[in-house]
């Protein structure tokens, strides 16, 4: 019974982390048809920005509560800055190329950002544990969990709701849906697709950075962080259906629970359970869980 509770809680915690990581990736793909490999680098940049901001903050003995706001601010600033730079400085020049070519473009960005991060932050790990530690522990069904991890679940729900509301209930969101549905038609109707692209990419980048910044207090932030995350995020997004926010949510939950079950019941298979789930889902639903099937060329 305790194992079951642990699987559910651990699974949900892991899923909420996966969702925040994957949300930006799937949004960018949905709107721009770019499978952004550099999303992992934005995660890393967010983590570094968050960790160094927190280190700076606590060196001045400010109250703990402010550090959580600081993490979010660090993520927004760093994510928006880098996102804008990548979109305006590079991607803009490449629009209209094949999807696979765009994957390679973002692979180039990933390589460049990996070394750029190293040049800016060095190779020594950053540790900024205070926000994680100060939240304390919570007991669920006789097991202790870190309150911070549970709080992330709440944040993740808020992000999901905000995205859903932003896309489905605002005017900007409707424009976004129009661009997703048919880019040419949207342009013809006078939607400023360029602006939609900029905004989407920046939001996607901020989400990636947010995932990193919120994870930063739990981990030691070190080089190579982004590369580890990106494949996981891909698995989630493909399982859920590329470009679908609901899909990313469900994909994250399935993979999160499956992984937690593996850790508790059969730790040997942890390494490939994620890909196993992805392959299984694709075998049954070739487009992923939530994606529309594309029209066939005639």
């Amino acid at each position: 019974m305790q194992t079951l509770i642990a699987i559910v809680v651990d699974g949900v915690i892991y899923a909420s982390w996966l969702f925040i990581v994957a949300a930006g990736l799937t949004l960018v793909y949905g709107v721009m048809r770019i499978l952004n490999l550099a999303h992992g680098s934005l995660y890393a940049i967010g983590a570094y920005a968050g960790a160094s901001a927190v280190v700076w903050y606590f060196a001045r003995n400010y109250p703990v509560a402010g550090s959580y706001a600081l993490l979010v601010i660090a993520a927004i600033v760093s994510g928006a800055l880098v996102g804008l730079l990548v979109e305006r400085g590079l991607l803009r020049l490449m629009y209209g190329r094949d999807e696979v070519v765009m994957v390679l473009v973002t692979y180039g960005v990933l390589l460049i950002l990996e070394d750029a991060i190293k040049l800016v932050f060095g190779v020594e790990a950053y540790t900024a544990f205070q926000p994680y530690e100060k939240m304390g522990r919570t007991s669920i069904g006789g097991m202790t969990f870190a309150t911070y991890d549970l709080a992330l679940v709440a944040v993740s729900i808020v992000v999901a709701l905000a995205l859903w509301w932003g896309v489905n209930r605002t005017k900007q969101g409707k424009l976004l849906l129009a661009v997703i549905a048919d880019r040419e038609m949207a342009t013809a109707l006078g939607i400023n697709v360029t602006r939609v692209f900029i905004v989407t990419f920046v939001i996607g980048s901020v989400l990636g950075a947010l995932a990193g910044a919120l994870t930063a207090p739990a981990i030691a932030v070190a080089p190579g962080l982004g590369v580890e995350v990106i494949v996981l995020a891909f698995a989630v997004v493909v399982t859920g259906g590329l470009g679908s926010i609901e899909g990313a949510l469900v994909g994250a939950l399935i993979i999160g629970i499956a992984r937690a079950a593996a850790v508790h019941l059969w730790p040997q298979v942890e390494l490939f359970v994620i890909y196993g789930v992805m392959a299984l889902v694709l075998a049954v639903r070739p487009q992923g869980l939530f994606a529309r099937a594309g029209a066939r060329k005639i």
């Binding site: 994957v103 490939f272 890909y275 392959a279 075998a283």
Partner: peptide, 28 residues
């Protein structure tokens, strides 16, 4: 037999998934 039903990015990702599963198996 399985993969020939897939196209585009799904073919790409699916083929990658198998590759990563082999990576996992060999790493164990």
């Amino acid at each position: 037999l399985l993969l020939c039903r897939y196209r585009e990015i799904f073919f790409a990702m699916f083929s990658m998934a198998f590759s990563m599963i082999l990576y996992g198996l060999l790493s164990k």
